[in-house]
Each structure stands twice: as C-alpha cells, then as structure tokens.
Write a protein that binds this DNA or RNA. Structure first.
Lengths: 127, 127
DNA sequence: ATGATTGTACTATATCTATAATACAGTTTA
DNA sequence: TAAACTGTATTATAGATATAGTACAATCAT
C-alpha cells in the first residue's frame, strides 16, 4: 500500500522518518537486509530517486549501511538502536509539551487532558 | 527578534502555525488589529510576500479578516477561538500518541515516560 | 555463463517556494 | 490637503524538490 505522505513537507524527509521509525520500532530487525531501493519505491508509490535520497541520507545516522552491489542492511548495534529509540521518544515528548505550552496549556493541564483522552479511549471511542 | 523557523518545511506554513497559535493562545486579543504585513515580515525576518501568503491563507479558517485599506483584525467570535484551541490541542495529543505508538510505546508506557519527564523537571533540570 | 538484481550516477523537466522590486487604490494620520 | 500606511497584485529570478528516463559495474541466482 502507498505510504501516508502529505504535501506539506519534502517527501524524502517523510520517507526517512517512516523508515527510521520502522527500524527503531523493530519492523526491521538488527542485521536484516531491507528491500531494494526500487522495491521500497514501488511500495511507497514514490520515485526511486526520491527513495534513494531518503536512504542515503539515513545512512549518516548509522542505522543503515549499504553494500554497493548486494543490498542495504540494518545495523547490528542494538545499543545504538535502543539509544535512538529513547532519544526519539524524548524528542517527541518535549516537542509535544512545547506545542501545548504555546497553545496556553500548562504541564498539569496538558497531563489532565491526556489522561482524559486515555480514559475515554479505554471505555470506547464513542460518546 | 527573528522567529524560529526551520528549513524542513515551507516558511509560510510555519508562519501560519505561529500566528494561529498566537491568536488562539491570546497573544492577540479578539477584535485586535494585528501589525501590518510589512511590520510582521520585518519582525519575522521574512519577505513581505511570504508573510502576505501566510496571512491570506490563514483567513480561510476564519480566525482573521482583512479590511483592504485599514488593516487586518482578529475575529470577535470567541466561541470559534475556544473551539479551535481545543481542536488544536486534541490534534496535538493524538499525533503525539500516534508517533509514540509507532515507536513501539503503548499508551501506558508513554504516560509513564511523560510523568517521569514532568517529575524530573519539577525537581530541577540537571541530573 | 547468463540474466536478474544491487546501489549509484546523471541529465532533463516541471512544480513549488522564497525573495526582490515595484505598483496602485483606498484609508488614516498629521 | 499632503504624506504615510494599508492590503493586494504583478513580474522576475533563484533554489529546492520530485519525477522520468537512462546507464553502469559488481554481485547474486539459476
């Protein structure tokens, strides 16, 4: 299926984020070979050049490495994977609170809204 | 001071978000006249055309309206302002949990991480 | 050995974005 | 009344982005 992409940001950046999340969350396992540029591009419904750009940019973080003629692989460094997972989560949390703060919600108010949402989802999505 | 803008997304979109937040969080009060296109552009260190685009796009949401020769004003509709504030907050919350879920964190795990972060900030930023 | 697959490179083209530089009609201000 | 300011419009230019199409050398599978 085509990946969910919006037109508000460069596609290659969105591809990078998606793949990074897939690596870090374990969709691809350490050491795994990932699909070829062309296959990934086909899956994402995107030009191969765009996917190539996303992947080569991603290599700079060390999550991926390419073997020029045999394919592209996930790093074996599980410590790095775990670290990036925690770093990303922390980043998401801080950005979220920054947005809420800018909207005028304090940390406590934000926490309450979150708990409300979670409670509501626990007992069903309607009402 | 120049506004905080990154190069990953179109500037006019970032301006829109910033101004929208400023309206909704009350930096600009209902009925207020906001600074002119040129002044805002100067403040943001951005081309007047770019600011003009951001403002005219923003008008479609109803938060602003322009009087062609006298200036641009915040809506008086406080009900709309409150609604947009809650809608935006809700959107931020859902997007945040979606990101965390994609990283592999459950709702409960995410909530715990948040509480950790808040506890840590309560007792000082170091350590 | 042969053919398919791999990452990579290159050119060309179209669109979007951002800036610069003007211009104009109506309103406000002094 | 005259000058300054308002939103808006226009043209031109430069850069980033996305796609299309093609090519090549090394490796892998059969």
């Amino acid at each position: 299926m085509p990946w969910e992409l919006d037109n508000d940001r460069p596609i290659y950046l969105q591809l990078m984020e998606r793949i990074q999340h897939d690596i870090i969350s374990g969709v691809y396992k350490p050491g795994d070979k990932i699909p070829s540029v062309r296959d990934l591009a086909l899956d994402a419904a995107v030009n191969p050049n765009t996917m190539q750009k996303a992947l080569s940019e991603l290599e700079r973080s060390g999550l991926l490495y390419s073997q020029r003629t045999s394919g592209r692989f996930i790093t074996d460094d599980e410590k790095l994977l775990k670290k990036m997972k925690m770093d990303l989560a922390s980043e998401h949390i801080h950005q979220f609170f920054e947005q809420m703060h800018h909207l005028g919600f304090s940390d406590d108010e934000t926490l309450e809204m979150i708990q409300d949402v979670l409670r509501r989802e626990q007992y069903g999505t309607d009402s």
